[in-house]
Nucleic acid binder design. Structure first.
Ligand code: FES
Ligand code: FES
Lengths: 152, 152
DNA sequence: AAAAAAAAAGACTTCTTTATCCTAATTATA
DNA sequence: TATAATTAGGATAAAGAAGTCTTTTTTTTT
């Protein structure tokens, strides 16, 4: 559904949203390590997000990426739009050129409620809200330490 | 979610399920035209489906593809398994290496109910049942004539 | 002012998916 | 039996996505 790139981007922004502030900037290297994503590829994505003012960045020593209060007012949907484009959820699940209630494909009414719900969630919640939920409900952004935990 | 190839395959099988019988076989050319899919590409897919005994075929004049009673007992999921592989729905929506209730990503509990429902629908209904539904509820497999209809 | 650390930018490579083309094998029918 | 229609199979091409590498620019620190 979402491209690889977009998945990386979303997880990165959420990561920054949790761990960065204006004072604590985080470099690509760190983010890529924590999320286990290819570093140079992620760098491109963060650049693109920064260019679209979805995240903030500062060059030079102790520089890096971070989110401002304003950045936190954006939604996950803004990230998807930036990386994958805004028509990502418009397509018919079976590849019809148009997804439409009046010409529904055989799985249309199974798929659309879900798409609508997801789209709403992505569009209506700010990153700030989303992040708060992530923290209180202990959602994970990386399975980096999963094996370690299992070994215990 | 599903690959292009798999979407074509599903629509083709449903098309055959509606329009073909042992007596009425349908060639790739016809199917590709009706569904507006690239012909040689679709040919490959139908070959693959035939090889896996999901559809039947006969060569030569008046030959083509069709579904037997037995073919109709298969499910959409069988088609997905044949073309995209059986792990298609296992992946985490945000790209974590594992999708799992005990290490849920931020959208896990939004996404999984849908995936489960879809997977059940795909797995539990036979093509025969599915097709019956398609006919009684007038679902569409192609928007070939959509523009024509609009023009009227 | 120099050096070092980081992001920004662009060119390039690799991999996967999608799609096409050509030839062979099979079968009905004239 | 010859011919034509049609699937089967293999090789190849084109496009897009994913990922890498190198150079430039900016900024902090010494
Ligand atoms: S028409 Fe296929 S999902 Fe809406
Ligand atoms: S863990 Fe991400 S969708 Fe299940």
């Amino acid at each position: 559904m979402l491209s690889n790139a977009c998945q990386y981007a979303i997880r990165s922004v959420l990561y920054l949203s949790i761990h960065s502030t204006h004072e604590i900037k985080i470099g690509v290297k760190k983010v890529a390590e924590e999320l286990e994503t290819p570093q140079p590829f992620l760098a491109k994505l963060l650049q693109q997000l920064a260019k679209s003012n979805l995240i903030s960045s500062v060059k030079g020593p102790n520089g890096g990426f971070y989110l401002t209060e304003k950045n936190l007012e954006n939604s996950l949907w803004d990230i998807v739009k930036c990386i994958d484009g805004g028509d990502k959820f418009d397509n018919c699940f079976l590849g019809l050129s148009l997804c439409d209630d009046s010409n529904p494909c055989p799985v249309h009414f199974i798929v659309t409620p879900f798409k609508d719900k997801l789209l709403n969630d992505f569009r209506d919640k700010t990153l700030a809200q989303f992040t708060k939920e992530i923290i209180t409900t202990r959602r994970v952004l990386s399975l980096k330490d999963y094996n370690v935990l299992e070994k215990k």
